[in-house]
Design a protein around this nucleic acid. Structure first.
Lengths: 114, 114
DNA sequence: CCAACATGCAACCTTTTTGTTGCAGATTGC
DNA sequence: GCAATCTGCAACAAAAAGGTTGCATGTTGG
């Protein structure tokens, strides 16, 4: 079970799921909002949206499933809070990938100029 | 037309589209592969995939539309090359959003400890 | 020229995603 | 207690995404 090949593919899937969660204007807006402010209830978030409350709830659950938000029930409302951890991994991935590319370009450049 | 509100929403949509393009294990794998190596043809990429050539072509076009890849025709084959620019924007966004959150937490902490 | 190769285009099917409506269950505050 | 409020669950319809097959068009190399 410690097959590195499988681990790699699991990681790929998790990252893809997180990216997919961000890959929707409504959800990206929710993340941005919640990252800049305190936890908010579903109704509160829905009041600023064109979607119905249930429509928004689905997006919130999607984000929660991807680990980007966390919800907790407080009385009769459930509050959603931003979670930064997964974003750090995504950001590192993007930086690493871009860096590899830049390095490859630099090597090519120095080779051509030789 | 220079309404900052509209500009903000256009940016939101572009970013969401880029995230969505990365939000699929097949496409994320393609990006990783092409970011670490030279441009490759469709057939070459398809030879390492479980998908059919046409299936892969769709994914490649999706990535190209999002600006993450660029294709050029060379003879009878079309080569796809990685483009790092959009990823830089996404990475910056993720960092900025996480940073805001960390700052907010720090403020809250210092307030509570006061 | 022509067989092999690489790609493009279109139709089609299946699965997922989005979004809505309707209704039921908890919780709050007066 | 009870009306107002907040949420959850289920069913459904519409739209989008993912993938395949079949066929047509360009290109290459001998």
């Amino acid at each position: 079970m410690s097959n590195p090949r499988l681990k790699f593919r699991g990681q790929l899937k998790r990252r893809a799921a997180a990216f997919a969660a961000l890959g929707d204007a409504t959800r990206l807006g929710l993340v941005t909002t919640l990252a800049h402010g305190p936890p908010k209830s579903i109704t509160e978030l829905a009041s600023h949206s064109r979607l119905t409350r249930q429509g928004l709830t689905r997006h919130l659950r999607t984000l929660e499933l991807a680990g980007l938000l966390q919800s907790r029930r407080v009385g009769r409302e459930s509050l959603f809070e931003f979670r930064p951890e997964p974003l750090h991994d995504l950001s590192e991935y993007l930086e690493e990938v871009s860096k590899e590319w830049d390095d490859a370009l630099a090597k090519l450049k120095s080779f051509v100029e030789r």
